[in-house]
Design a protein around this nucleic acid. Structure first.
Lengths: 214, 214
DNA sequence: CGTCGGTGCGAACGTTCGTTCGGTTCGATT
DNA sequence: AATCGAACCGAACGAACGTTCGCACCGACG
């Protein structure tokens, strides 16, 4: 079983990793790109061997099956998202600040590691068995964090918390389908605007609280 | 070329259609279900022949290729969504009422014809060539309608209209991943809650305008 | 009565798939 | 120097894929 690497850095490679883990990291990176571009089912192991300059058989030294390959990509991606969100949202923060921190963390991670996160959101139900259970557990952890943060807000009584959480995730997870780095705002500005919608709405009836003294 | 049927009813079949169109409707219905359950790439024509009790070769009397099959499913679904939304949102409506009508129409259509709409949102970029262009044009029409409706609202100046439209679509299109008919509210209540979030936010600072006299 | 087009099917074609087999290379270890 | 295991590869296996071929059925129409 391959040792998991540090669960924080996704992009290049941790310099202290073993050659095996470094190479595995490259392979997972290429797999994430291909899965994001073509979809899991439409990507062949031969595509992957072409993309990362290895032979078909040689790849199987790093995973046992195509399903495990997807599992490793998704687990790595989820661990990155979750550890970033946990670090960014200490429970001591006031509710609204904590929400803003959560949204900012989510967007920064998603825009910085887009192929990985595309695989996370788009290939959601294709795993099965123990792989599915393990990923579902990570997903549950992440949603649980969001649930805590959202339910700490003073929600209107008519608004079901589950609908609020899922609507927030809808705004956040839909971004991979439309965001163009050259055209659209970056993570910080985008986060502010989405928080503005989620907290105060796109057509608030009144001014914000405590307008700055002029 | 198969004549398109009436573009309104998706579920059973128009009673005045030719036998060919009625059978085609059944096939597209089964295809929509399979594509929604397994994904387009992971669904084989043999799966489809099993599901609708036809032979493999016989199916090819109703479409020329698997790509065209997906195209027919997506076009039919988009025509249904668009005609419903157009009928529900006459331009004379005041901006907020028009938005509420749009959201209600979207949710009713999506919850009533879930497999079709799952295919629409999940298999978004798999077509190519003329098929892609035709579906992209329909998608553009639908987004254009949403853009008109959203930009008629008094958006805060700091909120990019494109971000507002895409966030709204994010909330709406994400629903197919989490909504459980037995657990979650129906289209009407769900529409109210999502409109409440989108218009006034999940944590508004002040009461709504004009509280009813008590 | 004959035939003709729409509808259907079994069988097959060529391709690609995920996976495995057998063998080679090579640095580290004994 | 001998040995071992990790890393790697060319070639192949059986299965499944999208699609097509050739033929049977059958109601409509001359």
């Amino acid at each position: 079983m391959p040792a998991a690497f540090a669960a924080v850095a996704l992009a290049p490679a941790p310099p202290d990793a073993t050659p095996f883990d470094r190479r595995l990291g490259e392979i997972l990176h290429a797999a994430a790109e291909l899965f994001a571009e073509q979809g899991y089912a439409a990507t062949s192991i031969r595509d992957l061997s072409r993309r990362c300059g290895a032979s078909l058989a040689g790849l199987y030294h790093y995973f046992h099956s195509k399903q495990e390959l997807l599992f490793l990509v998704q687990r790595h991606a989820f661990q990155t998202v979750i550890s970033a969100a946990r670090a960014a949202t200490p429970p001591e923060l006031p509710p609204e600040a904590r929400l803003r921190a959560f949204v900012a963390s989510h967007l920064e991670t998603f825009l910085a590691h887009r192929p990985w996160m595309t695989v996370l959101t788009h290939e959601d139900e294709v795993l099965s068995g123990d792989y599915l259970r393990a990923i579902a557990a990570l997903k549950h952890d992440y949603y649980q964090l969001a649930r805590e943060i959202v339910t700490a807000l003073p929600l209107p009584p008519a608004l079901a918390p589950r609908v609020a959480v899922m609507s927030l995730f809808g705004m956040l997870n839909w971004i991979y389908t439309w965001h163009q780095p050259k055209r659209d705002p970056g993570a910080a500005v985008l986060g502010e605007q989405i928080c503005a919608i989620f907290l105060r709405g796109a057509a608030p009836t009144v001014r914000r609280r405590r307008p700055a003294r002029s």
